[in-house]
Design a protein around this nucleic acid. Structure first.
Length: 597
DNA sequence: GCCGTTTTCGGCCCGACTGTTTTCAGTCG
């Protein structure tokens, strides 16, 4: 039972308590504890073993009672409270509660009056008209609920960040055309760069709300309206994405931006700081009595409670407020700091663009280096290379190095980690490469101990530079494989291997929590696109978003280093001596090659 | 259920909007 498992149990308890109309503060206590656990870098089991159960009460939001429940879960894997709660009401009500407009109260009411227990039953009840007539339910609410059931089936609730962003850009441009608009900005989880978003919050600064609302409702992609108020509107786009729009006057814009960026937990924590200073913080400003003392700029809201500005990516109430107070906020890595892409495919395997095109595109981006990392043969669908294939590619890269200057080409591979942890390429071939990404592509459902052993064995190879897309997850499609990530991180640190933050929008693997945990374990990370075409080199920014959510500074990311430093870094592995000849042409100064035209 | 430079008891963030109901509860962020 790891931290995330325990956190999940606590969330379940919170949901069930809420449905049973328990004290909202008790509910919140479980949610706070769940968040603390989910983002805690070390397994709590290890903490308990080392310092005893009492140490748990040192964690934020965990007191004597919850510490006891954690220990109980660690020892027995069971939580009697959870059993007690599910004996009283079905767990499936929790799913029902996720339907928009249905909360704990209404879910409970429908269960009590109609015996509705699941989302499917809810949908049937809505279709048959049985909802109307239940106290507090009219035609409109029934229709909204039915719509929510259908949508839930279609989208499973959340949209990938990159997809949401692509839909929002044109809408933002549309809104900027409204009369009297001073500023338009995205807030919410999109601004926090969360990997998936439930809906999109847009904030507009303007004196008058009505022209902005009219402008919104004239947008052609709108499917239907959910709410239309003087300062707050909600619509659903044809794609199913929900947009919430808020209009505030300029003197409140900063406060509103902070407010609607969230996260909710971060806001609560910040407001509590305000309360302690006799301040009231809401979306209109920071108030001392009736007097507004801040609100125009976001930074002033933080200043009012004695904090520096905190980047949106960190606002999860996961230690950022404490770090800000103590001056420990990291200076987050930016996409402009990236000096090269270290995971790139070409037509040698399953890439869609030729070697020269990929290298040229990297050079055009201003990169100092690129690692060409085609698949090995185990990945048959990808047309992976064998040893002779890599020798042939090496010759092609050699020729290209003589004709292109200004960028250093590292010859690499994305070598498959086989079922037993062996690598899909012989040592001699691996030794001739400059950069080796080792990745799992098959048998992703192995149990955790076996999968962990498999990856640990791969990391033992002195030729492995980085572990590629470590958990193999595909957002919304495939769960991460069972892997003892903290252990992998420690092993990577000990052997000097890098952990990859794969920037493919559907991977974003590692996730934010694992990145932070790895960083804190002292592992160096690498943000790489895994590009299979020139256009995918743009994915770098998605990987950087993820790195920032994981508290990474530039120094935590290997490919922000200049070439010489990078080579030193990856050369720390045992293969430095053998790899040196292969690197020599790559490190030659550009002036020794082609003369400038 | 947590927490404490107001406190070990009594607080616990704050407001907009909807739909339903005749003054407000529920939901949402």
């Amino acid at each position: 039972m790891d931290n995330v498992d325990i956190a999940r149990r606590f969330e379940e308890v919170a949901d069930l308590l809420e449905i049973q109309d328990e004290s909202p503060f008790r509910v919140r206590a479980y949610r706070t504890a769940a968040r603390t656990l989910a983002s805690f870098g070390e397994p709590v089991a290890a903490l308990v073993e080392r310092e005893g159960a009492r140490a748990l009460t040192g964690l934020p939001g965990i007191g004597k009672d919850l510490a006891g429940k954690i220990v109980e879960l660690l020892e027995t894997g069971e939580l009697p409270l959870l059993k007690e709660l599910t004996a009283k009401i079905p767990e499936t009500l929790v799913e029902m509660m996720r339907i928009p407009s249905l909360g704990p109260k209404r879910a409970r009411l429908l269960y009590d009056t109609l015996g509705v227990e699941t989302v499917d039953e809810l949908e049937q009840a809505a279709r048959s008209g049985r909802l109307v007539g239940v106290r507090g339910f009219g035609e409109r609410l029934a229709a909204t609920i039915l719509d929510g059931c259908v949508k839930r089936r279609a989208t499973a609730g959340r949209v990938r960040l990159a997809d949401a962003e692509a839909q929002v850009e044109p809408l933002l441009r549309h809104l900027r055309g409204a009369r009297g608009v001073l500023a338009v900005e995205v807030a919410g989880s999109l601004r926090r760069r969360k990997e998936t978003v439930g809906d999109v919050d847009i904030l507009v600064s303007a004196r008058q709300g009505e022209p902005v609302a009219s402008r919104l409702f004239s947008y052609r992609e709108i499917q239907h309206e959910l709410a239309r108020g003087a300062t707050k509107c909600s619509v659903v786009l044809r794609s199913g994405l929900q947009i919430d729009l808020r209009v505030v006057p300029p003197e409140s814009y900063g406060a509103a931006l902070h407010y609607f960026t969230g996260s909710k937990a971060h806001n609560i924590a910040l407001r509590t700081l305000g309360v302690n200073r006799g301040l009231k913080i809401n979306e209109y400003g920071v108030f001392q009595g009736d007097r507004r003392i801040a609100g125009q700029a976001e930074v002033d809201v933080f200043r009012a409670v004695g904090l520096p500005w905190i980047p949106p990516e960190l606002r999860e109430d996961a230690g950022e407020i404490e770090a800000a107070r103590e001056g420990r906020l990291p200076e987050l890595v930016e996409v402009g700091a990236i000096r090269g892409d270290l995971h790139v495919h070409t037509t040698y395997s399953d890439g869609r663009d030729e070697l020269a095109a990929m290298v040229g595109a990297c050079k055009a981006r201003g990169y100092e280096y690129v690692a060409i990392t085609d698949h090995t043969q185990a990945v048959r669908v990808a047309g992976g290379l064998d040893a002779s294939g890599f020798r042939e590619q090496a010759r092609a890269i050699g020729r290209l190095r003589r004709t292109i200057d200004g960028i250093t080409i590292l010859h690499g591979a994305e070598v498959d980690i086989l079922e037993d942890g062996a690598l899909d390429l012989d040592d001699a071939t691996l030794a001739a490469l400059d950069y080796v990404v080792a990745s799992v592509h098959s048998k992703l459902t192995m149990p955790e101990p076996a999968m962990t052993r498999r990856v640990l064995r791969a990391l033992e190879s002195p030729f492995v530079t980085a572990l590629g897309h470590p958990t193999g997850r595909l957002l919304g499609k495939r769960e991460p494989c069972a892997l003892d990530l903290p252990r992998i991180a420690r092993a990577a640190r000990d052997v000097g291997a890098l952990l990859e933050i794969n920037a493919q929008p559907e991977r974003l693997d590692l996730c934010d929590i694992h990145i932070r945990l790895s960083r804190e374990a002292g592992v160096r990370l690498v943000v790489a696109t895994d590009a299979h075409a020139v256009g995918e080199l743009d994915f770098m920014r998605h990987g950087i978003d993820q790195a920032r959510r994981g508290w990474c500074a530039a120094a935590d990311v290997a490919n922000t280093a200049p070439l010489a430093e990078l080579l030193e870094l990856i050369g720390r592995r045992g293969r430095a001596a053998t790899a040196a000849p292969a690197l020599r042409p790559a490190t030659a100064t550009p002036t020794r090659r082609r003369a400038p035209a």
